[in-house]
Every structure is written in structure tokens, then in C-alpha cells.
Computed example of a mutant assay.
Amino acid sequence: MVTPTLRVEIALLALLPRNHEKNRCMDVLPPDRCLPFLITIDGESSNYINASYKQPSAFIVTQHPLPNTVKDFWRLALDYHCTSIVMLNDVDPAQLCPQYWPENGVHRHGPIQVEFVSADLEEDIISRIFRIYNAARPQDGYRMVQQFQFLGWPMYRDTPVSKRSFLKLIRQVDKWQEEYDGGEGRTVVHCLNGGGRSGTFCAISIVCEMLCHQHSVDVFHAVKTLRNNKPNMVDLLVSVRTSTSTSDSGLSTSTEDFTAADGAGKELLSSLFNDKKL
């Protein structure tokens, strides 16, 4: 079975009454075994956040912060040494998706201070750099975090407008990670509910890394691994296995098996790896 069912008994912490208000969707919950517990102390606040992470993964997947979890979001970024944030949805107060970052100056979220440094717009990507630190522990220093807000995936579309722009987003994140922290920092990836779009980004990032280092990829395995950690990842892709090879003329793909695959996940992944112009 490619998509494991999230049983109640494996998400007990997310279902505790005190954590209900921290979950955007009660059907998109992180399993207990993949929870990144918050470390920074913030009064009597709990150490729970609706996020999924399993070592040695480079990604922490979460939902867009709710108004009452913005400070937890920044605690997560600081506690887990994150140097990148990938945003795949829109700011929308009607859906309780607030702007969680400052456009200038400093915002304080509990003990975490978030200071705006710079911003840049390039095609479908707004990149913003922030300096974050724990005001209660100044001796720990600060961390530079770059947020990549992807504008090329409107809410009404199942897939991004441009696959070229989506791959550019992945390359920009990889470049920042390598230049700033030698590839050691983690990336927080979020969409509205921390499910389909976030999973698609992670899956394609993993596949691109396989392609660079191994010259062949297995999309089926990449997606299955993600879904074992969180069942809703790449939520419309049922089963995809793709073998990809590179040549001097560009990217060529041999699709061995698409079994029972349908929806946005299949469309995006298959189209990305069948475009020889990339």
C-alpha cells in the first residue's frame, strides 16, 4: 500500500485537547514518531506544533501558521537550525493564514525576535532574509533565514503555472542552503495544511538530488518514503515510479510504470520529468 492510513493511535499527541486549536485540519495530523518537539521555552506554552520531521531529513513540513501558532512557527525554525522557509500558499486572513513575518523592523513572538534584513522579487519568487534569535538567550547568537514565497501556484490550480519556475525555486533554495550553511541547515516547507503542495516540493527536491548524484531516479520510492512519515504528503499521487537519466542533450525520461496514478501529483511530477527543455 503506497498511502498508509493515519490511525488515531499514531497521532495521539496531535489529538490531545490542549493541541486541537493548533491544528488547521484534523485530517492532516503528524504522527507522534515524526513530531519535532519545540525546545525554546515560552511560558507555559506546549512543545507541540503541527509539523512532521524525521532525521536525517533536510525538510520539516508544516501548515501555514495559524494566528495563535505564529510564535511556535518561529520557535520551530530556531530550535531546528532552519536556514530556509518555503511558502507555497497565499496569505489569506479569511482562511486564518496571516502574514507571519515583518516587512521592516523587528517583530517579537514570545522570546523569538524576527528582524527584517532584505527582500527581492524575481519572476515568481519573493525572497526575504531575516535575522532570528532568542532574546532570552542572547549568548546563543542569531541565525539568518531566507524565506522563499512562491507566487506561481494559485490556489485554484492543482499544479504550478510554470514547471520551469518551480524547478528554479528548488535550485534557489539549494543554492542558499549550500552558500549560507554548507548544506547543513534544514528547510521548513509549508502550504495551507502541510500536505499535498509541501509533499510535492519535497518529492521533486529529492528526485532532483537523485538525478544529480545517481543519474537515475525512482519517484515512487521518494513519494512512498515521504508518505510513510506523513500520509497526506503529495495527496493526489497514488503510485508513480519513474526512471530518469541525463544525457548531453538534456533531460530525458523513461517512464516505466504509472499504476493507478491520477490527479495533481501525477500531472506535475510526470510533466516535470518529460520536459527535455529543462
Rank of each mutant, 00 (worst) to 15 (best):
D32P: 04
L35E: 03
P36N: 10
I41W: 00
S46L: 03
A51R: 04
K54N: 08
K54P: 00
Q55Y: 09
V61D: 06
L66W: 13
D72T: 07
R75P: 02
A77L: 13
L78F: 11
D79R: 06
S84M: 06
V86L: 08
M87R: 11
L88C: 07
N89I: 06
D90L: 07
V91T: 14
P93C: 14
Q95G: 14
C97E: 15
Q99K: 15
E103F: 09
N104R: 15
N104Q: 14
N104H: 14
V106C: 13
V106Q: 10
H107C: 10
V114D: 00
V114G: 00
E115H: 02
E115K: 04
F116H: 09
E123M: 14
I125H: 05
R128F: 02
R131W: 03
Y133P: 03
N134P: 06
N134Y: 00
A135P: 06
A136S: 15
P138V: 05
D140P: 01
M144F: 08
Q147S: 05
F148Q: 08
Q149M: 02
F150C: 03
W153V: 02
W153R: 09
P154R: 05
M155Y: 12
D158F: 04
V161T: 14
V161H: 07
S162T: 11
F166R: 02
F166C: 07
L167S: 05
R171N: 15
V173F: 03
D174E: 14
Q177L: 15
Q177W: 05
